[in-house]
Amino acid sequence: MNAPVLELRNVAKTYRVKQGLFGKAKPLNAVNDVSLTLNKGEVLGLVGESGCGKSTLAKILLGLEAPTAGQVLVDGEEIGGQGRLALARRIQPIFQDPYSSLNPRKTIADIVSLPLRVHGVGDATSRAKSVRETLELVGLPARVLNTYPSQMSGGQRQRVAIARALIMHPEIVICDEPTSALDVSVQSQILNLLNDLRKEFGLTYLFISHDLAVVEHLATRVAVMYLGRIVEEANVADLFDAPRHPYSRALLNSVLTPDPSQGVPDTQLGAAYPNPINPPSGCHFHPRCPFAQSHCKANAPRPVPREGGHVECHLHDPDSPMYRPDFTV
């Protein structure tokens, strides 16, 4: 149950961004030295503000972008050596917007069977059978086979997208904000479906979301991303009950539970999200951190292990002058 199916070792992705017509291209570290491990059957929640690099990370895992440095290993084998098709059999995506993730000119049967056709699996009859079975699995009747995406509701479309992702029986599914475009009542159906499918097929999810309540509900482990780095990674209970990184705490604070006895929380994140082209010195988070000291401005923190992951903060580093072992925020 605990063999790592997906491993990222010091993965980085740097874009060169031109500023202005004649400006010199500057490096933008969208993903900066990220190491992560996904074990079989777990759900790793990846959270962070927009622009933190979580979507770039997803693209690297799907083979849509090549990392500029580091290794991505699936079952201990490096992605580059596996080829695109082999990778596609093991990792499949579910995207955010079911209105944009299904080709409007294709029937549902065409959309769901595309992976089989691309990989040359089976003949027409066995493919049709496989499509029907997979649709049934996600709760869609065979009648939808010849309909078009435009005839379906958002929730139904997302079920089609899930069927397309699962038809090749991948091990890992990258869920990139799979419910944020859906209504509340539909969202819970899709979340339940994803949870059931995971249990039934032993799937491993990388679950990217900005909705921390959803992540807390579904994930077994959580990674918090800030400016291209994973600043804290921990088991879900540890992270939500006792966040160590001040940024994790701010994120958790900003969750609005439907509790009318509480007002709008103060996140204490004064400054705006920094421009990733000119990241702050030292600890990237220091301009927004209520606990920042001059040490944070000058020195980048190193990852310190914690249960189920690590944390990057001087407050938790025994070698740092700011070390406060009792600090849980």
């Binding site: 927009s50 604070n253 900003s254 007002g263 709008v264 103060d266 994140l269």
Partner: peptide
């Protein structure tokens, strides 16, 4: 973003 949402709402 959620963090900004909280700020704007308050």
């Amino acid at each position: 973003d959620v963090t900004i949402q909280a700020q704007i709402l308050s």
